[in-house]
Amino acid sequence: MDYQLAIENAPDAVPGGTGILLLHPSTGETDRIDTDFLKTDTDRFLVISTRTTAREVKQKLDHYDVDEEQAEILDTLSIERGYSRRSTDDVHYVSSPADLEGVLEVTRDFLERTEGKRRISLDSITEMAYYADEGRVRDVVTELLDLLDEHEAVGLFHLSKGVHDEEQVEQFLGPFDAIVDLDRDGNVDSDFDRL
């Protein structure tokens, strides 16, 4: 199963199981790339948000005209910030971005009970690494990529290159099939040679 992509300077489509790493400056405007990725050729998608609350994710989806009927959101921040939240059919909560097992569990459940073309957006690896051990975050990212492969889904994972040193960035690059690199001026470069 192939998925169409709406990413500048990238192939028109990628096979199911593809994991894409979006490298961006810490002040980079990633919303356009993220929402174009989510709304193209998709039946269901899961936004794993470690940077904003579910309410803010919904505002972003609405602003960029993404069909919320297809969306599920995993909010890792609200409980950490002291808001009491109950999960619904389309919004899930874990205690904090450091709850890596919880993130894995919600993602696995989403992929096991949905069908068709599924996409995952994780925004962002950088925030997870701020809250949890970086080595463990790398392991969980690899496990998430394995789930994409197993269920023929595709994923876009955000990493802020201004926050990590070169060696850390290289370590995170390792398991990904493709890299999309956004610069400060909004230019996009990509490397899909690993596919």
Rank of each mutant, 00 (worst) to 15 (best):
S78C: 09
M128L: 07
K39I: 05
T76E: 06
A98G: 15
R86K: 11
T114Q: 08
D12Q: 14
V140E: 06
D65M: 06
A10P: 02
S121T: 07
V163K: 06
V106W: 00
L122Y: 08
Y131A: 13
T107C: 07
G162H: 08
L195W: 09
R51K: 14
K39P: 03
E56L: 12
E167Y: 10
G135C: 01
R51T: 15
L104A: 03
V141K: 11
T76S: 13
V14N: 10
S78F: 11
L23S: 09
I73P: 05
D189N: 15
I48E: 09
T88K: 05
H24M: 15
Q59A: 09
E150L: 14
G116S: 13
V169Q: 01
T88D: 03
S190Q: 10
V180E: 02
E69C: 00
L21W: 01
L22W: 00
L144Y: 05
D149Y: 11
E29G: 12
L104W: 04
E115H: 13
E143M: 11
E105K: 04
D185S: 15
T114E: 12
L100K: 04
L159S: 07
V180Y: 00
D43P: 03
E167H: 08
V103P: 00
S96Y: 05
G17R: 07
R119L: 11
F110Q: 08
L156Q: 09
L22A: 02
R184V: 12
G102W: 05
Q171N: 13
V154Y: 07
F45H: 02
R119C: 13
S26L: 13
M1L: 09
V47D: 01
T126M: 06
L23C: 06
R113G: 05
S121Q: 10
D165M: 10
V14F: 14
D90C: 04
L46I: 04
Q171T: 12
D41Y: 04
E115A: 12
M1K: 10
Q70L: 14
L61D: 02
I120Q: 06
G186Y: 15
V57S: 03
F157I: 01
L159D: 06
A129N: 07
D146M: 11
L74N: 02
L23E: 13
V141F: 13
S160M: 06
K161V: 08
D31S: 15
L23M: 13
R118S: 09
L23P: 10
L195C: 09
R194G: 14
E69W: 01
V66Y: 00
D31W: 12
K39E: 06
H63S: 13
G135Q: 11
D109M: 04
F192H: 09
D133R: 12
V66S: 01
L21D: 03
D177V: 01
M128V: 04
S95C: 03
G174W: 09
L23T: 02
E72D: 10
D62F: 05
L22H: 00
S49R: 02
E56A: 15
S49L: 04
S87Y: 04
E170Q: 11
A132C: 08
D109Y: 11
S121M: 12
D67L: 04
F37W: 02
D165W: 10
K58D: 04
L61N: 03
Y131G: 02
T142R: 13
T18K: 03
A153W: 03
D12W: 04
V154S: 07
K117N: 07
D191N: 15
L159T: 01
G17T: 14
A98D: 11
L144A: 02
